[in-house]
C-alpha cells in the first residue's frame, strides 16, 4: 500500500543518479585516454605527496571522531519524528491527534523538550572541547 505519487520524485532522482553515474564511469573507461606514469599513479595526483602507505594502523583518536559521529547520528534519528510532529503542531493542524495541545503539548513544550535533549549533547561536546580532546599534536 505505497503512496506511489509521494515517492515518484525520489524514484526519478534515484534512476537519474544511477544512469548518470553509470554513464560517466562507462564513458571515462571507454573513451578516456590512458597514460600512466609514476606521477599519475599516486593517490592524489597534483596534490599532497603521500607519506607512507594508507594500509597501516591509524591513531586511536580517529576512533573518537567515529564515536562522536555516531552519537550525533543517533541524535538526528530522534530529531526526525520530532521535526515532523513540530511542523504540524506549529501550523496548528494536528487534527488527527485529538486533544494534543489541550493537554499542554504546545510548540513551546516541544521546543523545550528537544532543547533539553540538545543541550545535554552540546554540553558533552563543549566538555570534550575544553578537555582538549580535539587537540592533535
Amino acid at each position: 500500500m505505497l503512496a506511489v505519487a509521494e515517492f515518484a520524485p525520489v524514484a526519478i532522482l534515484l534512476a537519474a543518479l544511477v544512469l548518470i553515474a553509470g554513464a560517466i564511469l562507462a564513458a571515462s573507461h571507454l573513451i578516456g585516454p590512458r597514460r600512466s606514469g609514476p606521477v599519475k599513479d599516486i593517490p592524489y595526483e597534483s596534490g599532497v605527496d603521500p607519506i607512507g602507505d594508507a594500509r597501516r594502523r591509524f591513531n586511536v583518536r580517529f576512533y573518537l571522531v567515529a564515536v562522536l559521529f555516531l552519537v550525533f547520528d543517533v541524535e538526528i534519528i530522534f530529531l526526525y519524528p520530532w521535526a515532523v510532529l513540530f511542523l504540524k503542531v506549529a501550523q496548528g493542524s494536528i487534527a488527527d491527534v485529538a486533544g494534543f495541545e489541550s493537554l499542554g503539548y504546545g510548540p513551546g513544550f516541544l521546543a523545550a523538550s528537544v532543547g533539553f535533549f540538545f543541550f545535554l549533547l552540546a554540553a558533552g561536546f563543549v566538555y570534550e572541547w575544553r578537555k582538549g580532546v580535539f587537540q592533535w599534536d
Partner: peptide, 14 residues
C-alpha cells in the same frame, strides 16, 4: 549519549 561521549573521550584520551 552524553555518557558515551565522555566515555569515548576518556578511553581515547591523550
Amino acid at each position: 549519549l552524553l555518557a558515551v561521549m565522555i566515555g569515548a573521550a576518556y578511553l581515547a584520551r591523550p
